[in-house]
Nucleic acid binder design. Structure first.
Lengths: 232, 232
DNA sequence: TCGGCGCATTGATCCAGATCAATGTGCTCT
DNA sequence: AGAGCACATTGATCTGGATCAATGCGCCGA
């Protein structure tokens, strides 16, 4: 896929159709393209706030604290728009989970260019409110839930986002490692593994391979997620 | 203060000056006013997404999980605009920390009314991005920090927001109880108290009364906050 | 000014999850 | 296809903060 093609995808996903041709041209000029694979160094620097569009693949937004501690703040997937803050009390970086393509803009430039385009701003606002809601859910998980509830919540939300219904349940392909899951859920890799084993032993899921999950009982997982009510 | 007065405060704080008279009239009609004191029942219901302006006083946004567990997702103060999500996996409510006045709108109505007003949407977007950045900082705190680091982070951020420099350090008036602090930091009230005692013993702060804090050594607190670098 | 009461502090013990350690296994590269 | 290895699982022990329990004390109302 060419970069022009990638911008088109951004334009049809996020940008309003009503956008003027002039704005589109300017945005296209301000855009910086990047593609990366899992294991590559972080893609987006952190001296300035950035707005990043995930064209394809999936990424993790990681926050860095002292003593090398890391917290995965969000996983983001193709079609998502992500705000990556500049370093203040903590440093942020965006890393690839698999082969992915990104478009990034310095946030100040981006907002300047689209400030007259109410359709685009509204779309970006909606993305931002969804991200805020997700982050708040994460805060509950990190602040008040047991290890097992964290895993169950995580699997349920991933299934809602990208699960494929099959006859025996819901199939999930998760591009992140156990270590990424741990860093996202505030747990160690060992605890993640142990809790997965327990869910497996309870007959709630099967892991046919490292990155594939077959959720056999979504309702059972929901019930173990510590939610205020069983179903959504 | 009258409610009209309160709307004026909202208008001058958040709403763009460029807003049309028609939009203003419609917004004023859609607005719902509330005032409350500490101890009152939660102010904002949760069957629909709401947008709430804090005209005066301070509030906590609380998320409710199963088994009565609560997580304070954010403290918000006069002048803030808050998005309160409808109940899905968890329930959200807004409660007064002290005497306060609020204006709320159903989110869908609010966005419909301001969708042509790019100045307003941009302002709301900025509020939302600040809230997102704060929530991410909270995620790091909840996921990866020790009890002492959580307290230190909390005090430093509160000092940045509402501290008064005095000769011996920075004076803080915190309207929330120890229990609210605990629910915000993912700790019990006992741990909050113990860590405060330790900070007191280390000469970093004095607590002249229950809600007043005198931070004697902000740099020392920053150093204990687990930040990626010492000063901002 | 003096109770009384709710919040805060301090102390003792317990436990979920971290840490340390060893073993197993799916993926990749040749 | 096989070797090597990074990632994952499982086990043993330790510990920070939760929980259980008692005491202290600021604040409010009479």
């Amino acid at each position: 896929m060419t970069f022009t093609n990638l911008f088109d995808r951004f334009a049809s996903g996020i940008l309003s159709l009503s956008m003027t041709e002039a704005t589109r041209t300017k945005l296209e000029a301000a855009a910086r393209y990047a593609s990366a694979l899992s294991g590559d160094a972080p893609i987006v620097g952190n001296d300035k706030d950035q707005i990043v569009f995930v064209g394809s693949g999936s990424v993790k937004l990681v926050a860095h604290a002292s003593a090398g501690r890391e917290q995965v703040v969000a996983f983001q997937f193709a079609g998502d728009l992500v705000s990556v803050p500049a370093t203040r009390a903590h440093a942020y970086s965006l890393s690839a989970l698999d082969d992915c393509e990104l478009i990034s803009f310095p946030a100040d430039e981006f907002f300047k260019l689209v400030q007259q385009e109410e359709g685009i701003i509204l779309e970006v606002l909606k993305c931002s409110l969804v991200a805020l809601a997700n982050c708040r859910e994460k805060a509950i998980t990190l602040g008040r839930k047991t290890a097992q509830e964290r895993l169950a919540s995580f699997l349920v939300s991933m299934a809602e986002r990208g699960g494929t219904p099959v006859d025996r349940g819901v199939e999930l392909h998760l591009p992140m490692s156990r270590s990424d899951m741990g860093d996202s859920l505030g747990l160690t890799i060992e605890t993640v593994s142990r809790q997965l084993s327990e869910l497996r032993a309870s007959g709630l899921l099967i892991t046919p391979s490292r990155s594939k999950f077959l959720l056999l009982d979504l309702a059972g997982l929901q019930a173990r997620a510590g939610h205020i009510r069983a179903a959504a």
